[in-house]
Design a protein around this nucleic acid. Structure first.
Lengths: 202, 202, 202, 202
DNA sequence: AATGAATGAGGATTCATTCAT
DNA sequence: GATGAATGAATCCTCATTCAT
């Protein structure tokens, strides 16, 4: 996901055996989400769905079997991110600093992350905003669980998620490294300490 | 621009005879920029160009006569915003607080403002990012002109524009009022005072 | 192919159900090439691609699935012609006179034949001239295979294909019969004997 | 006409004074024909009319004042060529060889020459073929005037103009020099002697 | 359950032609 | 008469979505 694939082609290492047994469905779903994550990072959220199916090495029909519409794909990608953040929050000895590190990782991984999570302004076709909002809530809960009472972001109710949005807003640039640098600068401007920026893969 | 037009139709009060001769050119250009501003606010930057032409009450060809491509339209809209910010910065007795108020107005006016100005990440096909960057620079200069030496955002070179990006990131929501509330909360979290949020119209 | 269809409409006898599955692919490709051949003969090479798709009884997308661009369609049509010439050259007991007859048939069939094969002058935007040149070479080889050493067109290296171009240049007129008459006159002026002008179908 | 202009821009040396006196009309007509000749050579006969007007340094309306439709422009260009051929035929001491040299010059100058003169096959929208046919006749008369009785091309009635078409068919290639070489090879294959290939400018 | 071809609507773009100034 | 802006029809091209196999 970090290394940029060079083409739209199905990559050889993802070729699946001709085994079409019952486990294929779950495998396809996972392949689609992974492919979508890559394609989104490369082409943005408006990438053609056919590109995602191709990258996943499945037919277009399979994509529709698993996801009713375009938004559902994006949300599924996002859900994985959110689950990682929740896992980071639930891990032994987790604290806000650690969890923010994982959150920041995902913010810098793909601009898509943000555009889905906060897409409720003008321009959102609002087909699946409800679930996106639920995901936003889950992120908030994971963070708030470790938010000390006197923390800068604990003063007003909305401050926590506004800060998350702010950091996302600061995240621009062609490389992940540059985006991480800007994200960290943003947290610094907010006076908030952040742990190592990395995915959660216990 | 703030009040939502009810439909995509050409509004009756803008109907004009088929051909007003050369004098219509300037008028049409202005109408196109105004229409684009509205359409962008309503539908986002990916709105069909035909919708902009229709809203402006002109044929599609006129749009192409004035703007060679999609990006040129967005940049033209943005340029007006930037010019207002520059004028605010050049006004008598202007200070950072006033200028930030005008900047914030435009940030809350349209998500487009930001997506163009900071669109350099993956997903931007930007053929005209150079000019967008120039606009970004002009905003920075206008602000920096009033940035006192000991200011929070004067410490690191990038802090100023990162902060601008952060506030833009915080700006979501369906109504301008809600977006303004979030923008102000963002500036507060940054510890930066902002003047009245309003366009600059001397 | 020789008889002129009366209209651009999809002909009833070619109407097919909406989706015949994968097997339709080959059939559609053939239908497109056949339709293109007709349309080119009627309207010239600049005919709208939509007309070809309509004549073939398929959607526009199918055309783009099979042929990446306008030139690819023309080349596919041409390739069929060239293949016939090659087959005529490879047939038992073939001689130059026979092969020239088949070549001449295709020259009189459609002006398109020539314009693609020799289109390298100003006005050709040719993105795919390379393949067209390869086709030209294949025609040359098929002819040269039967070109006796002392033949009029064996003197200079370019004479053979210049002669082919010359005959094509002579071929004008609204009916195939008239074009054939002129083609034969052209070969006579060149002092070259030509066999019966007919397609090669074993 | 021979040297390739580098751009579509109006060339400085064709800038006309602001003098809009009565002689402007004739001057504009000439400028349009010259511009059309260049544009046809560069872009082919399907070039946009706007490019011709721009190159001529006049508004689009002027083009329509002088020429009712697209074909009329092409025919006007062609007429100049034909007139030169006629003048060459009428010149003192002219013979077939000289006149064919002038004809060949125009054949190599622009593929357009031919496409108009012989465009009566499929693909011609036949709006102005009558006048084109008249031009063709004028070329034929100019040549026939010097055609000796026992000449190769005097045997059958159509041979003369078929030969002209044949040479045009041989003329391909990106540079005039290459086209001239092929034209001369074509005349050689026809057993016809040709004089120096040059325009007629007594 | 998977495949990938086909459909067809939607949007981009280009020009011929008109016409107010 | 000249200008060149505006119109709008025509064409290109791309996908989202369906569906026979």
């Amino acid at each position: 996901m970090t290394q940029q694939p060079l083409s739209d082609e199905r990559r050889p290492d993802e070729r699946r055996p001709a085994n079409d047994g019952p486990k294929a469905a779950a495998r396809n779903r996972a392949a689609l989400i992974g492919a979508a994550r890559e394609i989104y990072a490369e082409q943005g959220l408006d990438a053609p769905l056919s590109a995602i199916a191709r990258r996943a090495g499945v037919g277009q029909g399979v994509l529709y079997r698993h996801f009713p519409d375009r938004a559902a794909v994006a949300v599924a990608v996002l859900e994985e991110n959110v689950r990682q953040i929740e896992q980071a929050a639930a891990a032994d000895g987790a604290d806000l600093i650690q969890v923010l590190g994982v959150l920041t990782w995902h913010q810098t991984e793909s601009a898509a992350f943000v555009r889905v999570l906060y897409a409720d302004g003008p321009g959102s076709h609002s087909d699946a905003p409800a679930y996106a909002q639920a995901l936003s809530r889950r992120v908030e809960l994971a963070l708030r669980r470790h938010l000390p009472d006197g923390h800068r972001l604990a003063e007003h109710a909305d401050d926590l998620m506004i800060a998350v949005g702010m950091v996302s807003g600061a995240v621009t640039g062609p490389t992940r490294e540059q985006r991480e640098r800007r994200a960290l600068a943003a947290w610094r401007l907010l006076g908030v300490e952040v742990g190592p920026v990395r995915p959660f893969d216990e």
